[in-house]
Amino acid sequence: MSQPLAVKTENLGRIYKIRNNRKEKQRELLALEKVNLEIREGELFGLLGPNGAGKTTLIKILTTLLSPTSGRAWVAGFDVTQQPAEVRKRINMVSGGETSGYGLLTVRENLWMFAQFYGIPSDEANRRIKALAEIVGIADRLNTKSSDLSTGLRQKMNIIRGFLTDPEVLFLDEPTLGLDVGASRDVRSFIRRWMDENPHRTLLLTTHYMVEAEELCDRVAIINQGRVLACDTPSRLKQNLHHEIFFQVWVVAPRLLDEYSFLQINGVKHFHQFPEEDSLRLEITLEEEGALSEVINELTVQSARILRLEKREPTLEDVFVQLVGQRMEEVENVALPAN
């Protein structure tokens, strides 16, 4: 028998109608297009994509905050538009990078109150609050008014709020956005632990950090401009790249390199350069190892001095490049339509 599905979407689509002012004509923005996903119970599923890809839009639809404009979606077996109340009993959601909460309540009161909505008895709620606060590292702040917390701590409070109700399906929208490196690591390891504790839990998280998707998720869907481009385990996604070889090269050069002449070399598939503090970082993808010598030649021609050269394993970023033809940062830097 097949495993039950925690989330299923069928040709899910969302169009936003936008009008900047009364005079202007309404424009349509395609935020999601024909999204078909099946997330099994017990999976830690990642949605990876650049800014504006449609990740939050998808989460909003699945958490009953937003109606789709086409297609259907089910969470824990219930239709999100037809049976929102059933869905809400079984889910919880946290958005990263925001400071929501009742500032005049203490951290404990904020969390206790949300537990009340889910019908968790007070004792049990307080026990869970304490345990989660220990793990996330805000146990000493439970009696602080939440308005007195730093942004990062408020976000931790919010993360606890999500786990507190032990939902069947938990949605985390960029949970580590705005957290420092250490806190992000803590949150990630907690997420993994929480999933391992109970095989019936399902978690859908969105991120635009490659590492997060790569080290955390059982399966990843890569999404760009509202469309799911690929969906598989991180290792299988990368397997498609087995015939490609990745080099990272740091050079010192008098000016930015002429990318075109590198791409002219036989066997060079992608060439990207990123200025760093005292050097240029080059991301080079080759179709055959032999092309490397010509690349080095060309570097000399362009007066670039090599500091370091590494062959590296493919990452999900490379998968993204293969699918979209651009690196994620580049997609994000493209000026969005004025609004």
Binding site: T63, R88, K89, S95, Y102, F117
Partner: peptide
């Protein structure tokens, strides 16, 4: 102000 409406909405309330 509190930015909690979406969390109230997604709860069984």
């Amino acid at each position: 102000h509190y930015r909690t409406l979406k969390y109230i909405y997604t709860a069984p309330v």
